[in-house]
Write a protein that binds this DNA or RNA. Structure first.
Lengths: 247, 247
DNA sequence: AGTAGTTGTCTATACAAATAAACAAATAAA
DNA sequence: TTTATTTGTTTATTTGTATAGACAACTACT
């Protein structure tokens, strides 16, 4: 089979244009009144209808409003939520500090065997039982983060009911007698959204996500929780403050 | 115009399948011998030819090798490069420590007016002159990072020739009499690759990138460099170590 | 040698996407 | 009001995408 090594193959021209314009709007390069459909068509080297198909999708997404005779206008772009990450990170504090109502729901919870990765982080046997908690975190009424959090059952058997009652992780841990815990490290990667995450975050497949993996320990330094969070790349920005780090 | 709000609209079925399989291979869910084309066709609910079109592209990308009569086999997946980020981050040290030959080339350099964002970071006038340096960083022979770095001209007039001579940023700064600089903070976002970055990083448009923005200051605490780097999400993982942070 | 299972190739058909050329309908400004 | 500009609609044609069925070529195993 003859296959050209073309990046854009298999993606309709109108889709490419829509994606390009969506990015331009998100980055603020396109705002207010947009150029006419005819101008766009010429700029992209396509027929006017192809541009119209692209604009129609963006209009459907609420990024654009077009009026016959007047023109097409870009909606004002929302700013990124700033999310500080450090040894003391907590979801509710972070989002709360940015004066947006936080929220979260438990998507799922399960007991399972520790994977090799997890066993290493917890310093336990590979077949030890762990508790997995899946949370969906919301800000401004739209989903922002999907978190998968693991706990050692031996240490945190009652975490699920405690969370259900307290409504927050920090609260649940306090209820179980843990305080003064801190985050040891955070790993960050960029990944395309998989079908499950795309559904929860209400975004398209392959949308760029920030994937963080982190280990939190007790005040005494014992492993407490291992978490993997996926942040909607378009709505959030993580901030790491290095002041205070050893030189 | 009637437009359904469908995520996958405008993306050919074979492309969606190719993207899905590419992710499966990258995450290790698919390895060694793959299911037959007929099985894939049934699993995805499409014709065998559509699957073949998807496999053909992955084969073109070197992720697959198919042999008539034998079957189709996934290439072994490369591991992510671990990139520690902290107050002392330097590119050559990081990649060097992972025992991979580092490398870098200057893509471009220019003098320009400070943007509002930049002026705030540097604490200077908005129309002050800054020097912009664009670097492409390579590991294992493949591009990994595109960095845009700004310096205040008033403080670092000779940075371009110094870099050209020293071959590294740290070396260039030493040559200009700066040492003991440290990174104050790092912001992290996930963005789709734009046309320029996609070209440099040799990746498809809209590939997830990690975008970091950081401020480095002199030993005395004065702003030294403001940098915006784009990391290829599929090949790298950033690690932030919070030990030593104030509690 | 034979057989089951695999990838590779071919032809034909139906549907979506993109192009082309006009024209209608609304708006803004002269 | 008139004019130019803009988005919206229609019809027709061409190119790409997906399906269907059949068969060839090759491999691994019995």
């Amino acid at each position: 089979m003859r296959v050209t090594a073309d990046d854009k193959a298999g993606i309709a021209r109108w889709r490419q244009i829509a994606d390009s314009l969506r990015l331009d709007i998100a980055e603020g390069r396109l705002a207010g009144r947009l150029p006419g459909e005819t101008q766009f068509a010429e700029r992209f080297g396509v027929n006017r209808h192809t541009v119209r198909r692209a604009l129609a999708t963006l209009s459907e997404e609420g990024l654009l409003t077009a009026t016959r005779g007047r023109g097409t206008f870009a909606a004002p772009r929302p700013s990124r939520i700033v999310y500080p990450v450090g040894s003391q990170s907590r979801f509710s504090e972070n989002i709360g500090a940015a004066s947006r109502e936080p929220g979260g729901t438990m998507i799922a919870s399960a007991r399972e065997m520790a994977s090799a990765e997890l066993a290493e982080a917890f310093g336990c046997r590979a077949n030890a039982t762990v508790i997995r908690l899946e949370l969906l975190r919301v800000a401004d009424g739209a989903p922002l983060i999907v978190s998968t959090i693991w706990f050692e059952e031996a240490r945190l058997a009652g975490i699920i009911p405690a969370y259900a009652e307290a409504g927050s992780l920090t609260g649940a841990l306090t209820k179980l007698g843990f305080s003064g815990q801190r985050r040891l490290w955070t790993k960050v990667a960029a990944i395309p959204a998989d079908p499950r995450d795309a559904e929860h975050l209400h975004c398209a497949l392959s949308t760029p996500l920030i994937a963080t993996t982190s280990l939190t320990v007790t005040a005494a330094g014992e492993p407490l929780q291992y978490a993997r969070s996926r942040f909607l790349g378009s709505r959030v920005e993580l901030v790491f403050d290095h002041t205070g780090e050893p030189v």
